[in-house]
Simulated scan of single mutants.
Amino acid sequence: MTAPVANYLPVRADWLALEPEAALEPDLAIIDAHHHLWDRPGWRFLMDDYLSEIAGSGHRIIASVFMQCQTGYDEGLAPHLRPISESAYVAEQAGRLAETAPALCAGIVGHADLRLGAAVEEVLLAHIEKGRGRFRGIRHITAWNADGTLMNPLSAGPPGLLEDATFREGFARLAPLGLGFDAWLFQPQLGELTALARDFPETTIVLDHLGGILGIGAYAGWRHELFRSWSRSIRELAACPNVVAKIGGLGMRINGFDFEKEPMPPGSTRLAEAWRPYIETAIETFGPARCMFESNAPVDRGSYTFTAGWNAFKRLTESMDPEDRMQLFAGTARRVYRV
């Protein structure tokens, strides 16, 4: 068993093995729009582990996008420069696979403290250099809630960060450098992101994990009411043409689906049933050309297998137009992250 780290669900390989599932439509090309690599106490998931995940899944992952997670930080650097070493590390790992899997981590999204204001440009330029042509944008996590049980101590942000003037000064440096912004927040903060998107229409914003759906702590037991509120917020956000939605990340502790509490891991049919209202709403609202699927590996493995997750996405879209499906599984990610 992998120990829980920083409020993540533990990955129980023995439990996941109880419900083996073969890949549906194994020839369908997929760009995994969001995964991590890390080596944390009690939890290792580096490039070779990701390659093993892909190989064992039966799915055809043709490319991927790495998402910042404080990996490979050089503690010898000044704190504001340490995230640059993550881009350098991931680019080096990706380069190692140049002949066998050249498109893994073809896009890198790193971190820079946008509260540096205009001075963040130094960090952004260094990311671009160290990323070896793979660097695509920044994720500065802004997730915050008055219920502290929801917070991840590795990335807890102060309230109102998206409205902060100095943060926005740093944010304004992204678009001129051809960089986008990945937004990770909780669903009550979606209105703040909508305001940011309206004020910076030239900056591409990617909404991670469908906007941080909540179902634990103060939000437990309010699934239907919270869905209605989330749906309204998603529709307002989708009115901003510079925003695209990343679909996945629905196996996290905060979502409150409680898959991990079941005696058997959920298969793709069970996942599709639980996720259908959210995923269908997102696709209907943003449109397939502004949505992309993600594995959120290894985080979501606390709730279901890599194979079952992608199978659920395939089940939920099986009746769609083939061109629309292509956008969801590869086209949108290819365009947004230039992979």
Rank of each mutant, 00 (worst) to 15 (best):
13 A>F: 02
33 A>S: 15
231 S>Y: 00
157 G>I: 02
177 L>E: 12
229 S>L: 10
65 V>W: 03
37 L>P: 06
337 Y>C: 01
51 L>D: 07
44 R>F: 08
302 G>F: 01
236 E>L: 09
244 V>S: 12
148 G>T: 08
246 K>G: 08
52 S>G: 13
121 E>V: 12
228 R>W: 04
307 T>C: 12
290 R>F: 04
35 H>T: 06
220 A>R: 07
25 E>G: 05
65 V>R: 03
245 A>P: 10
160 G>M: 14
70 Q>G: 01
183 A>D: 04
105 C>P: 02
128 I>T: 15
102 P>E: 03
215 G>Y: 00
265 P>D: 07
329 F>E: 06
24 L>I: 08
262 E>A: 07
174 L>H: 02
85 S>P: 13
239 A>M: 13
36 H>R: 14
323 E>G: 06
279 I>Y: 02
49 D>H: 11
260 E>C: 02
322 P>F: 05
301 R>Y: 13
221 G>D: 05
127 H>M: 13
93 Q>G: 08
71 T>Y: 11
133 G>V: 10
293 F>C: 11
164 D>C: 03
303 S>G: 13
129 E>C: 12
281 T>H: 14
17 A>D: 10
95 G>K: 11
114 L>V: 02
186 F>Q: 12
248 G>T: 07
234 I>S: 05
320 M>W: 14
329 F>W: 10
187 Q>N: 09
234 I>T: 06
226 L>N: 10
157 G>Q: 12
135 F>S: 10
81 L>W: 12
193 L>S: 06
328 L>R: 08
266 P>L: 02
327 Q>L: 11
131 G>T: 01
274 A>H: 04
247 I>K: 04
277 P>V: 11
304 Y>N: 13
299 V>Q: 04
150 L>G: 10
118 A>N: 12
269 T>F: 08
309 G>R: 06
83 P>A: 07
130 K>V: 05
290 R>K: 14
114 L>D: 14
267 G>D: 14
236 E>N: 05
43 W>P: 00
250 L>D: 14
178 G>Y: 00
233 S>T: 04
217 G>L: 08
308 A>H: 06
323 E>K: 04
7 N>Y: 08
53 E>M: 05
169 E>D: 15
223 R>A: 15
267 G>S: 11
310 W>I: 01
209 H>W: 09
244 V>P: 10
170 G>T: 06
247 I>V: 15
269 T>C: 11
278 Y>R: 04
126 A>F: 04
22 A>D: 12
120 V>A: 10
311 N>L: 07
235 R>N: 09
88 A>Y: 09
215 G>C: 04
208 D>W: 06
325 R>M: 05
277 P>N: 11
225 E>C: 04
279 I>F: 07
97 L>S: 13
272 A>N: 03
227 F>L: 01
115 R>S: 07
249 G>A: 05
100 T>I: 13
206 V>K: 00
287 G>I: 15
217 G>Y: 03
271 L>C: 13
6 A>C: 09
274 A>W: 02
9 L>N: 07
